[in-house]
Design a protein around this nucleic acid. Structure first.
Length: 300
DNA sequence: GCATGTCAAGTTGTG
DNA sequence: CACAACTTGACATGC
């Protein structure tokens, strides 16, 4: 078993910067490039330190923040690495990341949020989502990330029709993205049961989120869902990836979908013990939560 | 210097 | 039909 940290650190002094389209819009183009170049360069350095740091904490995976190259696909202020004054330096830093993560055996991943929806009814949304995935695919290739996890989308026109659109639009992605794409069950619409046939058709793996499964059950037990999801990875000789989190309030106050600071050990599926799995820990206390879970499970 | 507001995104649900 | 809510942390702004 390896455990994964998601996007940021709470105690370790590693931060990822970003900026907004609005803040950039007022600047002349060269100044936009200069500012973006600074941020991307700093983020590349931070990622290098992040890989070193998770390794020293005994953590085996790291999810890269979505705005790693902020506003990269934005219609007005978007850019390419070649346009940035520090473009070459950034590329070489990312190559260092790839080398280090390979040497330390750290898995890297991306997880664009719900706004990336290639099954949308709106062409414009699909177009922007494809562009966003291509951006993440580019960075994934440069740093050696092997998974980009997304959700199936909303329910416009019904779940079946939405999944059909997902499958119809999938071939529009480059091989770079398709070979990394994985589908994750969500907490309101698409369950493991819904997604398994899609994953099979498209020959892509399923990321099993046990918390979403508990919010949005489908008749499968945790053990069954785990087994089915794992098979979608194993058939390609890849290590399966799963997510775990705990709801913020055990008594259902407030929004049950909010993540808690730490993982309640009771939420950890007993059947996961000893499996060859990468387990992303989605908890607000970040690396502290990963460490505590490992400690409770007797793994550190 | 700190507190509050803003930004970014798509979908769903409400009024 | 229009718009708020959802989510989240860093940026940006104002006092």
């Amino acid at each position: 078993m390896r455990f994964g940290l998601c996007c940021i650190f709470i105690e370790e002094p590693i931060r990822f910067r970003t900026t907004t389209a609005k803040a950039l819009a007022g600047l002349p183009r060269p100044e936009q490039y200069a500012r973006l170049s600074d941020i991307c360069c700093e983020n590349a350095r931070s990622l290098l330190r992040a890989v070193q740091t998770v390794h020293s904490l005994g953590i085996g995976a790291f999810r890269v923040t979505t705005p790693f190259f902020p506003r990269y696909t934005h219609p007005e202020v978007g850019y390419t690495l070649e346009e940035l004054p520090g473009g070459e330096e950034i590329r070489s830093l990312l190559a260092e990341v790839a080398q280090l993560r390979s040497r330390l055996n750290i898995r890297l991943s991306f997880h664009p949020d719900q706004f990336v929806s290639i099954s949308s009814l709106r062409d414009e949304v699909v177009r922007k989502s494809l562009a966003e995935l291509e951006y993440q695919g580019l960075v994934a290739e440069l740093i050696g990330a092997d998974v980009i996890t997304i959700h199936a989308g909303g329910r416009q026109g019904g779940k079946e029709a939405t999944l059909q659109r997902f499958q119809a639009n999938f071939p529009l992605l480059s091989e770079r993205v398709r070979s990394r794409l994985a589908l994750e069950n969500d907490d309101i619409s698409y369950t493991v049961k819904d997604l398994l046939p899609v994953c099979e058709q498209l020959d892509i793996p399923l990321v099993y989120d046990v918390h979403h499964h508990r919010c949005n059950p489908d008749g499968l037990t945790v053990e069954e869902a785990t087994r089915h999801a794992m098979a979608t990875w194993r058939c390609h000789g890849r290590e399966p990836w799963v997510h775990i989190s705990s709801r913020r309030n055990s008594w259902g106050e407030g929004n049950p979908r909010l993540h808690a600071d730490y993982i309640d050990p009771d939420d950890f599926p007993g059947c996961w013990q000893g499996l060859e799995l990468t387990i992303d820990v989605e908890a607000k206390a970040k690396e502290l939560a990963v460490r505590r879970l490992m400690l409770v499970l007797g793994l550190s």
